[in-house]
Design a protein around this nucleic acid. Sequence first.
DNA 1: ACCGGAGCCTGTTAGC
DNA 2: TGCTAACAGGCTCCGG
Length: 278
Amino acid sequence: MPELPEVETYVRALEPLLTGKTILAAEVRWPRTIAVPDAVRFTELVRGRRFASFGRRGKYILLGLDSGETVIVHLRMTGELRLHPPATSDSGPAASPVDKHTHVLLELDTGEELRFRDMRKFGRIWLVEDTASVVGKLGPEPLEEGFVPRTLAENLAGRKANIKALLLNQTVLAGVGNIYADESLFRARIDPRRAGGSLDFEEIERLHLALREVLLAGIEAQGSSLQNYAPPTGAKGGFQEQFQVFRRGGEPCFCCGASISRTVLGQRSTHFCPDCQK
DNA sequence: ACCGGAGCCTGTTAGC
DNA sequence: TGCTAACAGGCTCCGG
């Protein structure tokens, strides 16, 4: 379940691994993975292109090519990118066998192979000239300087949906998913069931700070490793060790000892302390 | 404009 | 033990 810290960890890991390397050939095994253009066109357009720049917007990975186009990858829930080393001797590229969850393969000029795996097939890849056609509707980046409490207040004003659902809405704020939404609301001591528009400015200031602190701590720990997430280097994130409420339903609150509640909001499991969060 | 629910997928886990 | 059902969650689409 890669969210902003996991995707940021990915981008930081991929940059030194891919910079300057050229794609010799692409293979698409599950065509629906390629959102834009179609799978055939994708393989034609990336052939011969070199990785030139690396970035992130929300939960989207941006891989800029020397053609000026950008490969955009969204891992959704179970997607992963792995760089496989070349075959040790004579025969073709990428020694390790391709498993059934590998949907896109990029053969590189180093003999390595960049593979996109996704057990649940929700992940998507775009190849576009204009990144805004994919990420243009996203809300503010929570770790950029322009994101201030006032920004958050404006995006929550008048909203009747619960604050948990609004934090998951990528047009309100980019990059927050289920883990960091629950952890941020706990840190801000705000009940996830509250209507977004009911938060006063002091609460919004607390939430703004909590979001930034939790996301930075997530990046610091190289993300959270649950069932389906591991960075391309194979190293594991450690933020799950710091969870205060996420997946802790029925366990005691570290702050007050009350039993952590679990409910469903915005179609997502939601965890909170009924005593600490008001 | 906004909100909530279905659908996309498949491996894992809970329950009978 | 072996089966089925529920669950996991990011996002898009659709109806109200």
